[in-house]
Design a protein around this nucleic acid. Structure first.
Lengths: 112, 112
DNA sequence: ACAATGTGCAACTCTGTAGTTGCACATTCC
DNA sequence: GGAATGTGCAACTACAGAGTTGCACATTGT
């Protein structure tokens, strides 16, 4: 549906713990918050909060399986974000080269 | 020289004010901290700090011109970051598809 | 029925950082 | 020289968010 905000993705990725979570999730394919917490030096609650942020950014989804919730990573969303960053870079390059071109243009009437 | 940490770039971009700064800089080509501050609802000092973060991430450079310091954006760095995010996404995709393939493989070699 | 495991929510602490103000120093222009 | 403009540094406030603890509720297994 609506692809998640680039803002949200950037905020989500700008956190080492969350990147570790994504790393673990792509290693394992699927994991619960409790399982993830055991593999890192934080409590389950902290993991749950991070997963919430990642979910808001669209980088992760969870599905309920009985008493546990299994999360998995969504690489396509990261790819999305990468593409949009690239597009943004292109816009900036265009702007800057336009300015540069203007600066290098000989002023009208100054040319013999 | 050494390409800036992806971490630093993500942290730098995960801030609306800093993205606004980059936007202004690519619009204008070059600008001083004071000039930038006049175009946004924060003080010059705040702008200076943000420019520091952007500089650490390699997204901006400053050069001294007389009594003022003119900053300009570096789109190549953003492009760098986008590429590395894309590469990371590729790694994740590979991992996940490997897991998926394993899961779909009929169990052979189930050794007692 | 009961113990074990897992989730969900709320309140709390604490550190990082975005933003401010204030002042000293440097450079340009009159 | 003096006013204006711009930068640099330091101390301070304030708020977001990373992490914790504690407890109630849900699900599984014996």
């Amino acid at each position: 549906m609506n692809q998640p905000d680039l803002d949200a993705v950037l905020v989500a990725l700008a956190e080492p713990t969350r990147r570790t979570l994504l790393d673990l999730l792509t290693e394992r394919g699927e994991a619960s918050a409790s399982a993830l917490a055991q593999a890192m030096p934080v409590t389950r609650q902290a993991v749950v909060k991070h997963l919430g942020v990642l979910d808001d950014a669209g980088l992760v989804t969870g599905r309920r399986m009985g008493r546990e919730v299994l999360y998995q990573a969504r690489p396509e969303r990261l790819e999305d974000a990468a593409r949009r960053m690239s597009a943004l870079a292109a816009v900036w390059e265009t702007r800057l080269s336009a300015i540069k071109r203007l600066a290098e243009t000989p002023e009208e009437g100054t040319q013999p």
